Computed example of a mutant assay.
Amino acid sequence: MATWRELVTFIKQSYKVTREEPEEIRIRLRFRKDDEEPERTQLVVIAREVLDKREEWVQIATPFARIDEVDVRAVLEEIGHTTVVGGCVVMGDYLVLRHSLPLINLDINEFTDPLELVTGAAETLEEEFTGRDDY
């Protein structure tokens, strides 16, 4: 996979798309720890980014809390101890876990593994720090 169009085609075939724009596609992933737990979901924004006006990258971003509703230092400490892929950023009023990958020569596992790791970590952070399933 080497182009944005090819990645979008893969995403549309593999995931439930909730919104699509020329440079961005949104999906919703579902999580269930066991049959007795209610299903939880996580919104994921996958966007095409161009670095230095020449290199195409894909960014995976998923919000998990409003910054005014959590102890940001505690969130960052938790991410530092438990998260392997992705970093936390502030986007507007939200804390977002995100990860970026170069599109050129991107293998499918180089996309799906970080997608699942970032989204799963954000879901866990959301549950731990907000106790809700808003995103």
Rank of each mutant, 00 (worst) to 15 (best):
A122Q: 09
E126F: 07
D52F: 06
F31I: 01
D71S: 01
H99M: 09
L106A: 01
T82N: 08
A47P: 12
I27T: 11
D34C: 14
T130H: 02
G92P: 04
A122K: 12
K16F: 02
G87L: 07
V89E: 11
T41F: 11
A61S: 05
R54T: 11
I46M: 15
K53M: 05
R19N: 07
Y94E: 07
P102Q: 00
H81S: 15
I104G: 08
V89I: 12
V45E: 08
I46V: 15
H81W: 15
K33M: 10
T83G: 09
K33Y: 09
T130G: 01
R28Q: 10
V85Q: 09
E23M: 06
V118D: 07
I27G: 10
D134V: 11
R66N: 13
W57T: 03
T18N: 00
E36A: 15
C88A: 03
T112C: 05
T41Y: 12
L115M: 05
A74T: 00
A74P: 04
W57A: 06
T112S: 03
N109H: 10
N109W: 04
I104N: 13
T82P: 02
E36R: 15
I67Y: 09
D134N: 13
E55I: 09
I11K: 08
P22A: 00
E21Q: 03
L43A: 14
E78K: 14
E39Y: 08
E39I: 14
V90I: 05
T9L: 10
P102Y: 02
F10M: 04
Q13A: 13
E37F: 12
F129G: 04
E6S: 10
